[in-house]
Each structure stands twice: as C-alpha cells, then as structure tokens.
C-alpha cells in the first residue's frame, strides 16, 4: 500500500505541474537579467540560491546596478516580498504540528504558485503525512525547475549580444507580473499612484523615490478601497 506521504506528493505535483510551465521564461529571464547588469556567473548563482525570490531579485537589480545603499536594496526586496506575509499567515495552520526544521524549509520554499494551487486542499486535509507530501513535493520541484532554468539563462547570457539593451527585459518581466495584480480598482490605483509617485519623487536623495512611491501606492490603494466600500454602501 502506498504511504500517505507519497499519495500527497503525487497529488501535489499533479495539481502544480500545469502552472509550472509559466515559470520557465521567468527563470531564464531572471538569469539573463542578473548577468546583464554585470553580475558574474558565481554571483548570479549565489543570488539565486540565497534569495530565491524572482520578483525581489528582478526588482533589486536596478538598485544594485546603480550602487544604491544596502538598506534601500533590502527595503525594496522586503516590499516585493511582503505578499508572503499574507500567504504565510493564511497557510500557517498547515504546519502547526511540524518540526522547526520542516517549518524552516517550508518557509524558504514557499512560492506563489504552490500557495495558489494548494492552500485550500492543505488547510482541509487532516493527515499530516499527506499534507507534508502535498506541500513539499511541488515546492521542491519548483525549486529545482527554477534553479535549472535560471542557470540556463545565466550561462546562456554570454551568447546574447551586448548592445541589445537586454536589461529592459527586467522591466518587461516586472510589467507582466504587475498586470494580473491590478484586476480590481484599488489595486490599479495603488499601482498607478506607486509608479507616478516614484517618478515625481525621483529627486529624493539615496534613490528614496522608489520607497516613497511604494508608500504612496499602499496609501492610495487603501484609500481607494475605503471609498469604494463607502460608495457601495450609500
């Protein structure tokens, strides 16, 4: 008889597999982008292993290229990772009976795709072995795919022409990531205010304009949500 862990692992992989295809271009572009701003192969691989967060990596690259202060690089990565606080809060009950080591591994490996596909099933499952299999198998698979295809981008970047403005791929990647987020009006307001805020406040010292823009965007989105709810009630 098959163990609960393996049944969970197989079901988790089956649910996750279709959306993992979308990961491939991101991974390759992230690899090329890291090289295009001047990181070496080792530095790119190291960043990818340590940070393991595509959005935060892509978002931090312009700041690293500009030699921005460390705290600003960290703050930007933090802002781009903040959505995981929400995911973490939502999925935490799944791990209430797990060891610390498993919870630490699960934290490092938590990604949008596995959360989006599996959170509901995980929260409803009773068997801890099934849950562990269902979570860790697609998460580990995602990690392997990400590392392999980023490495392809990192080592393939050498064969790309130098003067092709390849760093613009970072901007394209960030644009494509923001699009599915701005489906609701407050999200759209937050994005527009954040972007325009960063443009208008670009004169601030230490490239603080980006952080200021993010703060403006959060405030605007929150305000828009508030007005929308008031409008719906009256």
């Amino acid at each position: 008889m098959e163990s609960a862990f393996r049944r969970g692992a197989r079901e988790g992989l089956r649910d996750f597999l279709p959306i993992s295809v979308g990961l491939l271009p991101w991974a390759m572009v992230t690899g090329i982008a890291m090289r295009s701003i001047g990181l070496s192969e080792i530095e790119s691989l190291g960043m990818n292993l340590l940070v393991y967060a595509g959005t935060a990596q892509l978002g931090a690259l312009p700041l690293i290229a500009a030699g921005a202060p460390l705290w600003l690089i960290m703050l930007t990565a933090l802002a781009l990772n903040l959505r995981f606080v929400i995911f973490s809060a939502a999925i935490a009950p799944v791990f209430h009976d797990s060891s610390f080591a498993r919870r630490l591994a699960s934290s490092y490996l938590l990604v949008d795709g596995v959360f989006a596909v599996g959170a509901d099933k995980l929260l409803q499952a009773d068997d801890p072995h099934w849950r562990w299999g269902y979570y860790i198998a697609p998460s580990a698979f995602n990690w392997c795919v990400w590392q392999v295809f980023t490495a392809l981008g990192i080592f393939g970047a050498e064969f790309m022409p130098r003067d092709w403005s390849l760093e613009f791929m970072v901007t394209i990647a960030l644009m494509v990531m923001v699009l599915p987020m701005v489906r609701t009006r407050p999200m759209l307001v937050a994005a527009l205010a954040g972007g325009l805020g960063a443009v208008l406040l670009r004169g601030l010292p230490l490239r603080l304009g980006v952080v200021a823009g993010i703060a403006v965007g959060i405030a605007a989105g929150f305000a828009a949500e508030h007005w929308q709810q008031r409008g719906a009630r009256s």
Binding site: T55, G59, I86, V178, M187, A190, A191, G195, F222
Partner: peptide
Amino acid sequence: LQRALRYAPAAALSALVMPDLLL
C-alpha cells in the same frame, strides 16, 4: 495591516517600472 499590505507588491512593481518607462 493585512489589508494594507495587499497593495505593497503592485505599488512596488509599478514604482520600479514607471520611472524606467517615463524617464
């Protein structure tokens, strides 16, 4: 706070993209 944080990723991505496109 949870509701406010939902807007952080969209605001952050756009704050990185728009300066590159408009400046």
